[in-house]
Design a binder for these strands. Structure first.
Length: 656
RNA sequence: GCCUCGGUAGCUCAAUUGGAUAGAGCACUGGUCUUCGGAACCAGGGGUUAGGGGUUCGAAUCCCUUCCGGGGUACCA
């Protein structure tokens, strides 16, 4: 059961006497910020007092008078300007925790009205290896899907991979001109990745060369203008303009530097230079390969058919490591034959019009149009995304779609959703679940020292390698009663734990931050053995199993014996209450698509557990009944911990 | 230029969407314990929530304004 909801319902009937619109006031019943104000508090008396022209305290007293919560709360108190403080009766909480302890769903009821929710996440471009930029979408999307599903919704996960775009043209071009067949036979995906990087580099080279003169001129012009400005002008406007101009020049210079670096990288390498000279039109020609593929060119389609499964398989390897599965992998190519109809329909409905040769949807509030077909006839991802919405509504019966995608694409989604609604898809709830950038310690987007993006695979390897050292060091330090070294874990089990700790650390670090803000990627912090990390939760869980092992307790057997949990110590009460509030937090995660609420909950739960653990002996409890009560409390806590972690996609080992 | 998202403790981040004295972790200081698993626990210091103004019983949160930073901005996805 959801305690908060129960209280809100009780209030709702009372509040009807005070207002016609109880909704917003019921929302003002919430958990207390501070334990000294009780467990929950109602803040609705102040605004109601104002609305009705009565003193808030008086309103609060009247509400309390009519309120019927005597079964679950101590007598309510009115405090301050009119806060109503509610404290749960411990016997009532005790009954509740005992029910939860024997409930498979840990007291979490499934939603009354399940929706069909499509979660669109990860969505890498298959032509290039996954990198750190895909981490958040993948980890957050997976967790949300798990939470939605547990909440009782029908969830469809769909990996909308990029398998049809410009990048594939580049690979095909690369394959036709630069492939090393031996390498391709040995490691096809590695060779394709090399080809992609090579073609990309050569494209960048020519692009940089062509841009260079103009950029230099631009800088000169800007500098001339700057020289005419007065940095110490008394006029604020002019001073500001000067600053702006300087920063613009700094930006242009930085751009110049990267361009020069790209050019130098090729010029300094005779082999690359030769290739670059031989392929001056590589960018245009790569695009032509893409166009040929889309037009159904036999050779290119054959190559695509050959490459795609290899690429998808390589992706799958990473998903397997991450313990992530999709119900569907419907990439861009899947919608190819539906795109022409989408544009036709948009035109028919007067939404898409021609402009500069392209077919565009113009939307209020947006300067740039939503381009559904380019001047050269090719379709864009706007078109594909529209086709995807249509497909998901018609084939999946989707009530809701969550796009777990970088915040930088917010304008695209805003336009996409507006267009979709204008197109007639009004009933489906479309949601851009956006997130911030993964930054390096320098506060810039996370890159390797040489400036490349960090591959996801090597990132995971690194995390697990570091975790291995920590796990080994910890196990090696274990001692027996006489103080002699006595490691407990087999090499195999150590490896398993290192994997759980390493991957868990990476995922947890990502999930614990408010998804909308950028966060700094730092191995040392995410794998730290102290503080708010996955390891801390895992350790809390393992400690409970440590007690079970030491006491020869089998949790399943314990449960079947139905010992009653008795709440005596304040730490027991705090722990029980936290456990009982699991369902509240999950419904918040569902409502806001914010897994960090769950990580915070689990961290608090672990803290409550260790506090309880420090204050109350379990195996050495004062009597058998208390011991069994506490064991049972440990058991239900361990179940919530491991269940909550599973919703984050994190493993909870029983021993560490 | 326009649009958009940010600025919170030394550092990394929260803050239940307008609630009571802004909280955690790291780092720092001090303490606990016969280690049911010390990867622990308890306590303490540390804040003009970028600056200024406004709205109201009440503001980190809403409005205005200034400063600083990120991102986006017509045929890449």
């Amino acid at each position: 059961m959801n305690i908060l909801e129960t209280l809100q319902q009780r209030f709702a009937t009372v509040l009807e006497d005070f207002t016609d619109n109880v909704g917003p006031f019921v929302e003002m019943i919430r958990p207390s910020q501070d334990a000294k104000f009780g467990d929950y508090q109602a803040n609705c008396a102040m605004p109601l007092g104002k609305q009705n022209g009565t003193a808030p305290r008086e309103v609060a007293l009247k509400i309390v008078d009519k309120l019927n919560v005597a079964d679950l709360c101590e007598p309510s108190e009115v405090a301050g300007p009119g806060f109503i403080n509610l404290t749960l009766r411990t016997p009532w909480l005790e009954d509740l925790i005992n029910r939860i302890a024997h409930d498979e769903r840990l007291g979490v009821e499934a939603v009354a009205k399940p929706k069909t929710i499509v979660v669109d996440f990860s969505s890498p471009n298959v032509a290039k290896p996954m990198h750190v930029g895909h981490l958040r979408s993948t980890v957050i999307g997976d967790s949300l899907a798990r939470v939605f599903r547990f909440a009782g919704h029908q969830v469809i996960t769909d990996n909308h991979i990029g398998d049809w775009g410009t990048q594939f043209g580049m690979i095909i071009y690369g394959f036709k001109h630069f492939v090393e067949l031996k390498a391709y036979e040995q490691d096809p995906v590695g060779e394709l990745a090399r080809l992609y990087r090579l073609v990309n580099q050569l494209c960048d080279y020519h692009d940089a060369k062509s841009k260079l003169p103009e950029l230099k001129e631009q800088i000169e012009r800007a500098e001339t203008r700057l020289a005419e400005m007065d940095p110490d002008s008394p006029d604020k406007q002019q001073k500001k303009a000067y600053k702006k101009q300087s920063s613009e020049i700094a930006g242009l210079r930085a751009e110049l530097k990267t361009l020069k670096a790209k050019i130098a990288a090729v010029d300094d390498d005779p082999e690359l230079k030769e290739l670059a000279d031989k392929h001056p039109q590589i960018a245009v020609d790569s695009r032509k390969q893409t166009a040929k593929l889309h037009a159904g060119d036999q050779e290119n389609v054959r190559l695509w058919d050959e490459f795609l499964p290899l690429c998808v398989e390589a992706l799958q390897k990473i998903y397997d490591r991450l313990d992530i599965a999709f119900d569907h992998t419907l990439g861009e190519s899947f919608y190819n034959d539906q795109l022409a109809d989408v544009v036709k329909d948009l035109e028919k409905k007067g939404l898409a019009v021609e402009s500069d040769g392209a077919k565009c949807v113009f939307l209020e509030g947006h300067a740039a149009p939503f381009i559904v077909q380019k001047a050269d006839g090719a379709y864009t991802y706007a078109t594909t995304d529209l086709a995807t919405i249509k497909y998901r509504v018609e084939e999946f019966g989707a009530d809701q779609m969550c796009y777990v995608v970088d915040a930088r694409q917010s304008e695209h989604f805003s336009m996409l959703f507006k267009t979709a609604r204008a197109w007639g898809y009004n009933d489906v709830e479309l949601q851009h679940v956006q997130f911030g950038t993964v930054m390096g310690k320098d506060g810039r987007p996370y890159k390797t020292r040489s400036g490349d993006t960090v591959g996801l695979e090597s990132l995971l390897d690194e995390a697990i390698a570091k975790a291995s050292e920590i796990v080994a060091a910890n196990d090696d330090a274990k001692k027996d009663a006489d103080g002699n070294p006595r490691p407990e874990l087999s090499p195999e089990y150590r490896a398993e734990i290192a994997e759980a700790v390493g991957l868990g650390g990476v995922k947890y670090a990502d999930l614990m931050h408010n998804r909308e803000s950028d966060y700094v990627f730092d191995y040392d912090k995410m794998l730290a053995t102290t503080g708010n990390t996955a390891t801390y939760l895992q350790y809390a869980h393992a400690r409970i199993y440590g007690i079970f092992r030491k006491g020869n307790i089998l949790p399943a057997k314990l449960r079947s014996e139905v010992p009653r949990i008795e709440i005596k110590d304040p730490t027991e009460r705090a722990l029980a209450l936290r456990i009982a509030r699991y369902s509240e937090f999950l419904s918040d995660v569902v409502a806001d698509c914010r897994p960090n609420l769950l990580t915070q909950y689990l961290f608090d739960l672990s803290n409550d557990l260790t506090a309880f653990y420090a204050a109350c002996h379990v195996l050495n409890a004062e009597d058998e009944q208390t011991k069994r009560s506490r064991l049972m409390l440990c058991d239900v806590c361990a179940r919530v911990l491991s269940h909550g972690m599973s919703l984050l996609g994190i493993k909870a080992p029983q021993q560490m």
